[in-house]
Design a binder for these strands. Structure first.
Lengths: 125, 125
DNA sequence: GCTATATTCAACCTATCGGTTTAGAACTAG
DNA sequence: CTAGTTCTAAACCGATAGGTTGAATATAGC
């Protein structure tokens, strides 16, 4: 996997187990055991997933006796959301190209575009 | 890679070359040759990247003589954006947990939460 | 039909992923 | 100190990712 932050974030999200772990952590801290419980998978495997999430900066770990509780850190998701947001104009018009999207913008000021409130001007990369 | 749509989308985005290809395609259709030009990489490699994007539904291909122009289809990004959007409330308060976020909501009605305009109510999962 | 151009297929290589198992480390409690 | 719990490290494994090269396919132009 490439070493840039955005790639690590997206790679971390590209696994349903890890997304489920993040969903669980959105309800609060959890130990490895608690996180592993819903899965038919060894503790070690979950521990590895946590490490991937940690390397991506999406999870931080603490220490409480034997336990090493994990907690969510959603900040890298902001950057990911921002990246995707630059493309919002392309799905706002569903099947449409940018051309017909701009066209539509001129014809009806507010109708199919209400979803695109997050859109930012595309800068560089 | 897991076979669900969201995983394929995130996996496709987890590579800077593919993100650059998408960025290029956001300016309009392009042939493999045009897409390969900025990279020190064989045509075949770019062709493979395009296939990953195509499998993820992010790119569709056409035919124009020998050329097989690729065009952006951003619709899968909408789902990805929605998934990430469910976590917006967690980065809105930066370091905070859900607990202190809800706490904050009660104590000051509008202050540190102005960033969270995209937040959707977290429903199922 | 031949040749040039654009793209993909097929085989191959190395590195990483996601999982396992087994052992060991970190800590608590008797 | 010993025993029990929780978690991670290490070694291993098969499958996939991302790249290469060289041959095959598709199309256009002559």
């Amino acid at each position: 996997m490439p070493t840039d932050q955005l790639s690590r974030t997206f790679a971390a999200l590209a696994d349903p187990t890890r997304r489920a772990i993040l969903a669980r952590l959105s309800e609060g801290e959890a130990t490895v055991g608690e996180l592993a419980e819903p899965f038919e998978m060894s503790f070690a495997a979950v521990s590895k997933h946590l490490r991937v999430l940690e390397t991506a900066g999406l999870v931080s770990r603490g220490r409480d006796a034997q336990y090493r509780p994990a907690r969510l850190d959603a900040r890298p998701l902001a950057a990911a959301s921002e990246w995707i947001g630059d493309y919002a104009k392309f799905w706002a018009g569903s099947f449409d190209t940018l051309g017909s999207y701009l066209d539509k913008l001129q014809h009806n000021d507010r109708a199919t575009t209400d979803q695109a409130t997050t859109a930012k001007e595309n800068d560089d990369d």
